[in-house]
C-alpha cells in the first residue's frame, strides 16, 4: 500500500516553477531517495509534503487522506516528521529539552516525554550530550539532534533533508547505520542526499528531480543505468 502519494504537484514562486507536475508514491516501509542537482526542488518538495507550502497545483495524500493544505503541526500529528537541511535546533535548550519538546506531541506528562526523549537520544548516539545546550553542538551532532527530535514525535514517515552533508566518513557510517535501524523499526523514509554511494546503498526506490521536473524514477539499479540521469546528474556528481 502506498503510504504517501504525491499527485501532480507544482509549486511556483512568482514566475519560477520550483516544482512542476511531479508525481510519485512511497510504499510503506520503504526508503525513497530524492536526488537531483542543486536547486532541483528537493527541499521545496519536503516543504510541500510537510505543509510549509500549500502546492500551487496538485495534491498530497498520506494514508489515503489528503494532507496538502493542512498546517505543518497537523501533518506532524498525522505521523509525518522531518529534519531541516539548514538545521534548526532550539538553540538555548539542552539536547534533552529539545527532544522532550517533540516527545510531548504524543504524551502529556513530563516523565513519559522524558522517557521517549532519552530513548531517541540514545538511539541517535547523543547520550553523552544530553545536557549540552544545543547552540554549542558541532554540526554532526546537530544533524543527529534533528533526527532524534523528529523521531520523538513518533512518526510513521520520516523525511531527512541532507542529514549526511558535511559529516566526516566515520560519522557518515554511523548515520547510515541509524537510518537502517529506523527502517527496521518500520518507519518509512524519504531522504534527500548528495552522497551517491549512500543513496544507492540504502534506497529501495529513487526519484530524480531536475529543474523542478521528475527526470526518472526506479530502483537504484535502474537509476544507475539510466542514460538521462547519468548525463544530467550522476556524471556531474561523479566528476565533482
Amino acid at each position: 500500500m502506498s503510504l504517501l502519494q504525491v499527485k501532480g504537484v507544482s509549486m511556483f514562486f512568482g514566475g519560477l516553477a520550483a516544482i512542476s507536475d511531479v508525481s510519485f508514491d512511497i510504499q510503506k516501509g520503504d526508503i525513497l531517495g530524492l536526488i537531483g542537482p542543486n536547486g532541483a526542488g528537493k527541499t521545496t518538495m519536503f516543504n510541500v509534503v510537510n505543509g510549509f507550502y500549500a502546492p500551487s497545483r496538485g495534491e498530497v495524500f498520506f494514508k489515503g487522506k489528503k494532507i496538502s493544505g493542512l498546517k505543518p503541526h497537523q501533518i506532524c500529528k498525522l505521523g509525518v516528521a522531518r529534519t531541516f537541511q539548514v538545521v534548526k535546533p532550539l538553540q538555548r535548550m539542552s539536547v534533552l529539552d529539545n527532544v522532550i519538546a517533540s516527545a510531548y506531541l504524543r504524551v502529556n506528562n513530563r516523565g513519559e516525554a522524558e522517557d521517549i526523549a532519552r530513548e531517541k537520544i540514545k538511539f541517535t548516539g547523543l547520550h553523552d550530550d544530553v545536557n549540552v545546550i544545543s547552540k554549542g553542538l558541532p554540526l554532526g551532532k546537530r544533524k543527529k539532534l534533528e533526527i532524534a527530535r523528529a523521531l520523538a514525535t513518533q512518526p510513521e514517515m520520516l523525511m531527512l533533508d541532507e542529514s549526511f552533508a558535511g559529516l566526516n566518513p566515520a560519522e557518515l557510517d554511523e548515520s547510515i547505520e541509524i537510518i537502517r535501524k529506523i527502517k527496521e523499526r518500520g518507519i518509512t523514509i524519504m531522504i534527500i542526499e548528495h552522497h551517491m554511494k549512500v543513496i544507492m546503498a540504502i534506497s529501495d526506490r529513487i526519484v530524480v528531480l531536475s529543474y523542478g521536473q521528475k527526470l526518472a524514477e526506479g530502483t537504484p539499479n535502474e537509476i544507475g543505468n539510466n542514460p538521462l540521469v547519468v548525463e544530467a546528474y550522476l556524471g556531474e556528481a561523479e566528476s565533482a
Binding site: 535546533p89 532550539l90 538553540q91 538555548r92 519538546a101 506531541l105 527530535r149 523528529a150 514525535t153
Partner: peptide
C-alpha cells in the same frame, strides 16, 4: 516547553507538531 520551543524557532516548533 512549547512556549520556549516557539521562542527558539517557530518553524521548527510548527514542524514538530506544535500548533504555534
Amino acid at each position: 516547553y512549547y512556549f520556549v520551543a516557539i521562542r527558539e524557532d517557530q518553524d521548527a516548533a510548527e514542524s514538530l507538531g506544535i500548533n504555534t
